[in-house]
Amino acid sequence: MTDTSAEFLPARERRSRRILWLLRALAGDPMAVAAAIWLLIVVLAILTDSLSLLGDNRISLKARNLPPFDFGQSWTLWLGADALGRPLLVRLIQAASTTIGIAVVTVLTSLIGGTLLGVIAGYFGGIVGNVIMRICDIILGFPTLLVALFGLYLFGPSVSNLVIVLAITRMPAYIRVARAETLEVRERLFVDAARVFGGGPTWILRTHILPSVAPTMLTLASVNLAMVMLFESGLSYLGLGIQPPSVSWGLMVAQGQGYLSSAWWLGFFPGLAVMLTTMSFNLLANWFRIVNDPSQHWRLVSRRR
């Protein structure tokens, strides 16, 4: 019953206890630790890139298709170089910014849009709610890849179209969950009480409904990050996503495809990066779900697993 006693602690102390508990739970799951470390490396790499600490990325004919693991070279060339002699490691880091940036923006867009639409559909119902839900049914009635391909075909490939199309294909899931949770919360007594005491809809939404919906939505978002990354990579590989001279991991695989038999590393490393990052998102999402489910807590702390 340590949790109940924590209720009486000052907020700051309670929060630090919560963080300690999270760290302890994380330590109990080596895979989640590995995932967190990998994501940390990726984030740091993106930071160094955005602060332009990466040294040069010029075309160098001497280094054309330089094989990897030649540690006599500058560290930027440790993963080899591409057909134009650009260091692969630097390219990978630049692509990471695009790939992860697009995934994060897409997920945030569908998270915010989906939550709002779902809460509206659930709280107000009626014709608006019905229309929103039917549109969701239609989008979910087709394969995600098909909808995304069709959207990019209609509106042309560009970063903003890519984000919009991917966000729209993922949004129905958020809308459905947000609507279901809102309906449930709305039926509960305390909202009736709030209404009796004169709380307006926005006040009720902000203080009662959004806090109850948030944890589920965040879990969904953490799972979706991985999914969106995979879709973006696939679309960019096909040439319908990120366009050169921008670079993303999927596009790098496509560019390396032609050199498969002579310079395997050009296609290998970017794909591996997609896989490791997707997997890390998945593992952390898994861990996040267990942490948020009290009935699973013993798994994280028990010695006798």
Partner: peptide
């Protein structure tokens, strides 16, 4: 398996 990009798996 759930995280591997299928096109990359194909190329490999």
């Amino acid at each position: 398996a759930a995280s591997v990009p299928d096109f990359w798996l194909g190329l490999m």
